[in-house]
Amino acid sequence: MELILSLGIGVLVGSGTWLLFRPRTYQVIIGLALLSYAINLFIFSMGRLTVNAPPVIQPGTEIDPAAFADPIPQALVLTAIVIGFATTALFLVVLLATRGLTGTDHVDGKEDDR
């Protein structure tokens, strides 16, 4: 499971980074989206990988920390998803505005001189 998760994060980061450095705004935004998926998974993995373990502790019972999943990364990842979603949406608007104002989807607002 660790291998699959690491490979998944790695592939997402790799393709995200590559897309981020591309000259088209659409590629940049997809790159950012892929990167943020990767990072969400990464935050999640920082709580250690557990299967079939609840994150919520029953009050009044004896507590064995190993039998529970770490709830904090789960909370963090939720916040990160929400914030990432909002900022990506905002970026999308700016992307459209640039497209409208400059007439090109190049990140610098003008085509390369070739």
Partner: peptide, 14 residues
């Protein structure tokens, strides 16, 4: 502004 804003947002998101 929009052009500078695009760079600003992309860099800060990263």
């Amino acid at each position: 502004r929009v052009k500078a804003g695009l760079h600003y947002i992309a860099i800060n998101l990263t």
